[in-house]
Design a protein around this nucleic acid. Structure first.
Length: 301
DNA sequence: AAATTTCGCAACCGCACAAGT
DNA sequence: AACTTGTGCGGTTGCGAAATT
């Protein structure tokens, strides 16, 4: 037996909010506040809505200073950086973007930014409903099952961004590699060896001059985001050892997640990972930064 | 011009967690 | 300690609009 529903589903209105409902909710909260009880609030106002629905409506649309659409390049960069660093923790990401809601950022990421970043061109709708007895096979099957695999997606993005940003590769110079790249390369080698037909290129340099500089550091556990205090004027001197912080395996949940990746998950990755087709016009903005900073997965160097 | 497909966004659902009892 | 209840979050869905055939 599951928990009781939060409201009487039969007597609750669903779907889009009318201007009258918006007005009722907004004027009540403006006058009385939420009262710290969303469940009771709709009854007080006389709205036939679930309390959760009221909360969502208020947080995403009615509260003051909400921005919709018109994401800037800077916001794109922040979202991308944080997504790669901490994954789909939209509330944390939204907290760094005043006026933006987690729902808005989530939608923006899923519908536009991800495609912009990965340069992925879908052959068909991800929302196509499989006809019984005609389930998709091969590439389509991987695709449908694994679009939401956050860990793989983040690794893909990471590789993609690195590829965009540097003409060199640290793969041939392990002495310069931070721990992240060792693990990444080990994983790639292992995957290439164990999966017939798979041949994923090693990632290019992290921290090299010209490589992407993510200006934020996020503690994977606490979600605290702050500007990285360690400035890197050129990637070589920093990567050579000084200021290199390592993270324990238990802190590094990204590859822990990767450890659970199965054959089918990799299908999405290797089939759609096309370095040559990559395009992200936000890169120029990153290049413009004079403060070359790199922070990723709670690691700074 | 009509039909079909794809896209974008608002909203819902269910789970996890925290606080209260 | 166990249970209940409210809140917050991320994933997913439904549907209208736009684009394509």
């Amino acid at each position: 037996m599951g928990r009781a529903p939060c409201c009487d589903k039969a007597n609750v209105k669903k779907g889009p909010w009318s201007p009258e409902e918006d007005f009722k909710l907004k004027s009540y909260i403006d006058q009385h506040g939420t009262g710290n009880n969303w469940i009771a609030l709709p009854q007080k106002i006389g709205l036939k809505r679930c309390g959760k629905s009221c909360r969502l409506r208020w947080l995403n649309y009615l509260r003051p200073n909400i921005k919709h659409g018109g994401f800037t390049e800077e916001e794109d960069n922040i979202i991308c950086s944080l997504y790669i660093s901490i994954g789909s923790r939209w509330s944390i990401i939204a907290a760094q973007l005043p006026g933006r809601t987690d729902n808005d950022i989530k939608n923006y990421w899923n519908t536009r930014l991800k495609k912009k970043l990965l340069g992925r061109h879908r052959k068909s709708s991800s929302r196509r409903v499989p006809i019984p007895g005609q389930e998709p096979e091969g590439e389509d099957a991987f695709d449908l099952q694994n679009l939401s695999n956050s860990a793989l997606e983040r690794l893909q993005l990471h590789l993609q961004l690195q590829t965009l940003q540097t003409p060199f590769s640290l793969y041939n110079n392990p002495a310069l590699l931070p721990k992240l790249n060792h693990k990444m390369i080990e994983t790639l080698d292992s995957l290439n060896q164990n999966i017939p037909g798979l041949n994923i290129s090693a990632p290019p340099a992290l921290g090299q001059e010209g490589s992407i500089k993510i200006p934020f550091h996020c503690d994977p556990k606490s979600g605290v985001v702050e500007q990285n205090p360690i400035l890197v004027n050129d990637g070589f001197s920093a990567a050579a050892g000084e200021n290199l912080q390592t993270v324990g395996d238990d802190e590094f949940d990204f590859f822990k997640e990767m450890g659970g990746a199965g054959r089918e998950n990799l299908g999405w990755w290797c089939n759609e990972f096309e370095v040559k087709s990559s395009s992200w016009d936000s890169t120029a903005v990153i290049h413009q930064s004079e403060e070359h900073v790199y922070g990723d997965y709670g690691m700074s160097f």
